[in-house]
């Protein structure tokens, strides 16, 4: 049995942050990569639905699954999805968190609450592993409510932007907010 553990003397040369800037031969490079992402047929229609204040899903003609957000094909059957379904937009909070940091890890001035919404959609059992759902912001609740657990399972509905401000984007929904008197 070896007394000295492996790995023995792992190599590597640590640098402090300030050493990095002063290092001879350090190369600073700023990439500039711009993209235009195609939404494709299914998502384009979904985004147009958002502009009209509707949450749309699609149904697989073979297995009957309803997909939200919609896909052009069923993941299980690989069949083209065929039928559009308009959802009521209501649902329950699957999970919710309070963010104190922005995308680049800088501190946010005001914390933001985000989560996953399990949408009311035909064909899913109440506690099924898969469900129709969206990732979005949650408003009208406090960080304390997120932390004490009362937000999970809460009934919510989309708060839409005024029609003239909608652009056909996921942000046409400002956030999901509690359904009045609908807390369960």
């Amino acid at each position: 049995m070896a007394s000295e553990g492996k790995p023995v003397n792992p190599p590597g040369t640590y640098l402090k942050r300030q050493d990095l800037e002063r290092l001879p031969g350090i190369i600073r490079y700023k990439p500039s990569a711009r993209y235009l992402f195609a939404a494709g047929q299914a998502l384009s229609r979904f985004l147009k639905g958002l502009k009209e204040g509707k949450i749309l899903g699609v149904r697989c003609p073979v297995c009957g699954r309803v997909y939200v957000p919609p896909r052009a094909y069923c993941e299980y059957c690989h069949a083209p999805t065929s039928e559009w379904v308009e959802l009521p937009g209501t649902g329950v909070v699957h999970t919710a968190v309070v963010s104190y940091i922005a995308t680049d890890r800088s501190r946010m001035e005001k914390p933001e609450i985000v989560g996953v919404i399990r949408l009311d959609a035909p064909g899913y059992r109440e506690d099924s592993y898969e469900f129709a759902g969206l990732f979005h912001k949650i408003c009208g609740v406090t960080p304390e409510q997120v932390m004490d657990g009362s937000v999970i399972g809460m009934r919510v509905k989309p708060r839409w932007k005024p029609p003239e401000e909608r652009t056909g984007s996921i942000t046409d929904i400002e956030c999901f907010e509690p359904v009045e008197g609908g807390e369960q």
Binding site: F37, S99, T103, H136, I170
Partner: peptide, 17 residues
């Protein structure tokens, strides 16, 4: 890029959720 990035997510959000 279409359904998530416009919401300004940080990587840690998904783990927190």
């Amino acid at each position: 890029p279409i359904l998530e990035r416009p919401l300004g997510p940080n990587l840690i959000w998904i783990f927190a959720m």
